[in-house]
């Protein structure tokens, strides 16, 4: 079970969180014309990375905040966690 550092609450076990997918996906702005390809990339197309992955988790059984977690998908090592509005430097 992963041990996740919630930037709001501190170290908590994985069973307090729910997974939310790739954090690098940006929703196209409202009312903006987008091509089919662009929209499909947003809704469906995801890379199944092996290695460092920035992903979303929600602390649903805690502060209910969505957070960003930088995790290695093969070793499960967690490098850093961020608040929802924090910019993530590469």
């Amino acid at each position: 079970m992963l041990y996740i550092n919630c930037p709001h609450c501190g170290m908590r076990s994985q069973n307090e969180f729910s997974y939310g997918g790739d954090a690098s996906v940006k929703r196209p702005s409202l009312n903006k014309e987008v091509s089919d390809q662009e929209w499909d990339n947003f809704v469906y197309n995801r890379k199944s990375l092996r290695g460092k992955h920035l992903e979303l988790w929600q602390h649903i059984s805690g502060c209910r905040q969505w957070i960003k977690v930088e995790r290695d998908t093969s070793t499960h090592e967690i490098f850093r966690t961020f608040k929802a509005d924090e910019e993530v430097a590469k």
Binding site: S18, G20, R27, L56, Q58, R64, Q65, W66, A84, D85
Partner: peptide, 16 residues
């Protein structure tokens, strides 16, 4: 529960 998470997602991440 899903709807609440859905709303929180948009408020916290998409349209803060």
């Amino acid at each position: 529960a899903n709807v609440l998470s859905h709303l929180e997602y948009y408020l916290q991440l998409v349209w803060p």
